[in-house]
């Protein structure tokens, strides 16, 4: 399983591609690709967003579902989704509506 991530051009915020081709600031909203065709679709949409100067640094990342929630396999991606592990008052984890922890 993979999801597509990038950083938003204007402020560098980590974002994930949703099914409606919008970019979410939280990983929960990402569209999951379970097959190669969907991966390709995500990548096409991502490249289009790069061309439109919405995002930079595209990457397809490996995830699994843990208790029904998206869980990136690499710590790097978990930290991108949550924020610095030493400062839980910073990054997405500091928002009241976000529960993910790296």
């Amino acid at each position: 399983m993979k999801i597509l991530t990038a950083n938003r051009l204007t402020d560098g915020e980590a974002v994930w591609l949703c099914a409606d081709h919008s970019w979410a600031e939280t990983i929960d909203a990402a569209e999951i690709a379970r097959d190669a065709a969907t991966e390709e679709k995500l990548e096409r949409a991502g490249k289009a967003a790069v061309c439109k100067n919405e995002v930079v640094d595209l990457a397809l990342v490996d995830v699994e579902l843990v208790d029904g929630r998206i869980w990136p396999k690499r710590l790097r991606e978990r930290i991108r989704a949550a924020g610095p592990t030493n400062r839980t008052d910073l990054g997405k984890q500091a928002r009241p509506d976000i529960s993910i922890a790296a």
Partner: peptide
């Protein structure tokens, strides 16, 4: 860059020369 007149490939060396990196959470 923000207006879309420069691509990231064109802009990246320019921003780096001015100390701007892109990291995990932000610039």
């Amino acid at each position: 860059r923000l207006a879309g007149e420069l691509t990231e490939d064109q802009f990246k060396p320019l921003r780096l020369m001015n100390g701007v990196y892109l990291q995990l959470h932000a610039y």
